[in-house]
Measured scan of single mutants.
Amino acid sequence: QVNIAPGSLDKALNQYAAHSGFTLSVDASLTRGKQSNGLHGDYDVESGLQQLLDGSGLQVKPLGNNSWTLEP
């Protein structure tokens, strides 16, 4: 069960990665100043990332080996 409060997208993504045990490689300029609506409930990694990114204009991309990145 994930419980991440709304706020900074950077912070939300870092909390989610730490909670879910995956690696997220992101260029900080992509997420700077963006906000997230947070995340509450049970999600697989990709669904949770998509939910956190909702409205940010960013997309999640798998890199393999439980690693992910973001792209515009």
Rank of each mutant, 00 (worst) to 15 (best):
Q1K: 13
Q1R: 14
V2W: 11
V2F: 11
N3P: 04
N3H: 14
N3T: 11
I4G: 03
I4S: 01
I4P: 00
I4F: 02
I4T: 01
A5N: 08
A5G: 09
A5M: 10
P6K: 10
P6Q: 07
G7L: 03
S8P: 15
S8D: 13
S8I: 05
L9H: 02
L9N: 00
D10N: 06
D10F: 13
D10S: 09
A12G: 03
L13M: 03
L13H: 02
L13K: 02
L13V: 04
N14C: 15
N14F: 14
N14Q: 15
Q15S: 09
Q15M: 11
Q15F: 09
Y16W: 14
A17R: 06
A17E: 03
A18H: 09
A18S: 11
A18Y: 08
A18C: 12
H19C: 13
S20V: 15
S20N: 10
G21M: 07
F22Q: 04
T23E: 11
T23K: 11
T23H: 12
T23I: 11
L24A: 03
L24G: 04
S25E: 14
V26Q: 04
D27L: 08
A28G: 10
A28S: 11
S29P: 02
S29E: 14
S29F: 10
L30V: 08
T31C: 10
T31R: 00
R32C: 15
G33W: 07
G33S: 04
K34Y: 08
K34R: 07
K34G: 03
Q35A: 08
Q35G: 06
Q35D: 08
Q35N: 12
S36Q: 09
N37W: 09
N37Y: 09
N37V: 09
N37F: 10
L39M: 05
L39C: 05
H40T: 12
H40V: 14
G41W: 04
G41I: 05
G41A: 01
G41M: 01
D42N: 13
Y43V: 06
Y43E: 03
Y43L: 05
D44P: 07
V45P: 07
V45D: 03
E46R: 11
E46A: 11
S47M: 10
G48D: 02
G48S: 04
G48M: 04
G48P: 01
L49Y: 00
Q51G: 05
Q51W: 08
Q51V: 13
Q51H: 11
Q51I: 14
L52V: 03
L53I: 13
L53G: 01
L53D: 00
L53M: 04
D54H: 14
D54A: 15
G55W: 02
G55Q: 05
S56P: 02
S56R: 00
S56D: 00
S56K: 03
G57C: 11
L58N: 01
L58S: 02
Q59L: 11
V60Y: 10
V60A: 15
V60K: 03
K61H: 07
K61C: 09
P62H: 14
P62L: 09
P62G: 09
L63M: 10
G64K: 05
N65Q: 09
N65R: 07
N66A: 06
N66V: 00
S67W: 11
S67P: 00
W68V: 03
W68Y: 14
T69I: 13
T69P: 02
T69Y: 11
T69L: 14
L70G: 01
E71I: 14
P72T: 09
